[in-house]
Simulated scan of single mutants.
Amino acid sequence: MYEPIRTKSVHSTTAGRPSDFPHRSREEELDIQLAGHLAALLAVTDELRASAPSTELDTAADRLAGQVARLRGGPAPARLTAPADALDPTVLHQRAQALAGRALVVAASRADTAAAILSAERIDAHAAALHPQALAAR
């Protein structure tokens, strides 16, 4: 009734034989994912710094760069050096808040306390920039 499978499955390997493709552990995959989210957050933070410089954003960018370098196990990530095209700061804060949220989820699943704290702080900072009246009500 069914045609037999004629090719070897690409999803399984025979016990004791090394596979033909490299495998990464769950922790390595989460490190890569977290570094990517933090690097994207760093890029948006650099854009915000270019449009409205502040010491708070400078500090946050330096901390983000340090975390990305730690997770990648190498040099500091590339940074924005020239002023970017002027984008709406509201859009940048929304983007940064979303990226920080994604980083927080991955950091929590990875049990990376330093990255989780930094991500949560960035969520709060961008929320405050988006809704300053909400913080005044607290």
Score class of each variant (00 low, 15 high):
4 P>L: 10
4 P>K: 12
5 I>Y: 07
6 R>V: 15
7 T>F: 13
7 T>K: 12
9 S>V: 05
9 S>W: 01
13 T>Q: 09
13 T>V: 12
16 G>N: 09
17 R>H: 08
18 P>W: 00
18 P>S: 03
18 P>I: 01
18 P>A: 01
19 S>Y: 04
20 D>K: 05
22 P>E: 10
23 H>S: 09
24 R>L: 05
24 R>M: 02
25 S>N: 08
25 S>C: 06
25 S>D: 04
26 R>F: 14
26 R>H: 08
26 R>I: 15
26 R>L: 11
27 E>P: 05
27 E>Y: 11
28 E>I: 01
30 L>H: 02
30 L>M: 13
32 I>G: 06
32 I>W: 04
34 L>P: 05
34 L>E: 07
35 A>V: 15
38 L>H: 04
39 A>P: 01
42 L>M: 12
43 A>W: 07
43 A>M: 07
44 V>R: 05
44 V>A: 14
45 T>Q: 07
47 E>I: 07
47 E>K: 09
48 L>A: 04
48 L>Q: 06
51 S>W: 06
51 S>R: 13
53 P>E: 14
54 S>P: 02
54 S>E: 04
57 L>T: 10
57 L>Y: 10
58 D>Q: 13
62 D>Q: 15
63 R>Y: 00
63 R>V: 04
63 R>D: 08
64 L>P: 00
64 L>S: 03
64 L>E: 03
65 A>G: 05
66 G>R: 12
68 V>R: 05
70 R>E: 02
71 L>S: 00
72 R>G: 03
74 G>M: 08
81 T>N: 08
82 A>N: 14
83 P>Q: 13
83 P>A: 11
85 D>A: 14
85 D>I: 15
86 A>V: 13
86 A>K: 05
87 L>N: 11
90 T>A: 13
93 H>K: 02
95 R>M: 08
96 A>S: 12
97 Q>A: 14
97 Q>S: 08
100 A>V: 11
101 G>C: 00
104 L>E: 07
104 L>K: 07
105 V>C: 03
110 R>D: 11
111 A>C: 07
114 A>S: 14
114 A>R: 14
115 A>G: 01
115 A>M: 05
116 A>K: 04
116 A>Y: 00
118 L>M: 14
123 I>Y: 00
124 D>M: 06
124 D>L: 03
125 A>D: 14
125 A>W: 06
126 H>A: 03
126 H>P: 04
127 A>F: 03
127 A>C: 00
129 A>I: 06
129 A>T: 11
130 L>R: 00
132 P>N: 11
133 Q>F: 08
135 L>Q: 13
136 A>V: 07
136 A>Q: 08
